[in-house]
């Protein structure tokens, strides 16, 4: 992410025998693809590149130098200043705590809810399922004004409860994991019944281990949406000490122009957890993001 990746075209290695005469045109086509891909990559990466050099450059000197495409008067300590002086450390901590609470609770409520809908029979099942579906029409943006009143009257502004409670359960998690549970072979469930597993035993010893891929995908989604939240924490916090990192970023953009690179460095710091996630869990992340969009 830090530098613009220039990709050198590979040697025109022949992968399989080509009919004579077409070698040149295939080589040209391939070069054409590399050129197009590189141009697209430059377009995608340019904003990130600008962020990085702007974060490191002294803001005033950079503007005075006529906004070049390279670093001007490097301030390498900008990251440590953003981390400690500008309060990002605390904001990252608040974000981390809120994210962990949300993920843990969503895991629990979704798995239990999914299990009930997939494997249990009980009165009012249809109605309760409709209640779950109905929440899809009531995103936090719609209910924001009223929920803030609720949280305020509970005295939960500027608290972990206030930051997390509306997100401790989610219809998406219940749906996704229920699908995963329903995908378990019927024979396997029957075998478990005959073996003598009760519902709790079956849930923990069989259903959850076998639904791991789906649960993993859901946890990726859960992490992304919890970490990236903006509208709710913006309204549920009034004190700087309770700002999540996303909110702290906005605050930093309102600082003086000669300090503006603190905001840019902050953006890099705030993105780091997701960058690490993308590097180490790329496959799960792709599976999570495409869950529901692409079959197979």
């Amino acid at each position: 992410m830090a530098t613009e990746s220039t990709v050198t075209a590979p040697p025109t290695a022949v992968e399989r025998p080509r009919p004579p005469g077409s070698g040149l045109s295939i080589g040209l086509a391939r070069a054409g693809w590399y050129i197009s891909l590189t141009l697209l990559a430059v377009v995608v990466l340019f904003p990130i590149y600008m962020l990085v050099i702007r974060a490191i450059s002294d803001p005033i000197s950079f503007i005075n130098a006529g906004q070049p495409l390279h670093i001007v008067s490097a301030q390498w300590d900008v990251f440590s200043r953003a981390w400690s002086d500008a309060g990002l450390a605390r904001a990252m901590g608040v974000s981390a705590v809120a994210t962990i609470v949300i993920m843990g609770a969503q895991f629990m409520t979704s798995v239990l809810g999914a299990y009930a809908f997939a494997f249990l029979e009980f009165p009012l099942k249809k109605l309760l399922f409709a209640i779950v579906i109905g929440t899809l029409l009531l995103p936090i943006e719609v209910t924001l004004v009223a929920n803030i009143q609720t949280v305020r009257s509970l005295g939960w502004l500027n608290s972990v409860q206030g930051l997390t409670f509306p997100f401790l359960a989610t219809a998406l998690g219940i749906f996704l994991i229920r699908q995963g549970f329903l995908g378990l072979p019927r024979d396997l469930r029957d075998a478990a019944t005959l073996d003598g597993f009760g519902h709790i035993g079956f849930l923990f010893k069989v259903a959850i281990p076998l639904a791991k891929p789906v649960i993993g995908s859901f946890l990726v989604i859960s992490f992304l949406s919890a970490w990236n939240q903006y509208v709710w924490p913006r309204n549920a916090t009034t004190e700087g000490a309770w700002q999540t990192v996303q909110i702290a970023l906005r605050t930093l953009t309102t600082t003086r122009v000669d300090q503006i690179n603190l905001a840019f460095a902050g953006a890099i710091i705030a993105a780091l957890p997701l960058v690490l996630l993308l590097i180490f869990f790329q496959r799960q992340m792709v599976r999570g993001l495409t869950a529901g969009a692409v079959k197979g």
Partner: peptide, 12 residues
């Protein structure tokens, strides 16, 4: 005890 056509073994 029952033996299933698909064997129904726990894969994990």
């Amino acid at each position: 005890a029952m033996v299933f056509q698909s064997y129904a073994l726990y894969p994990h």
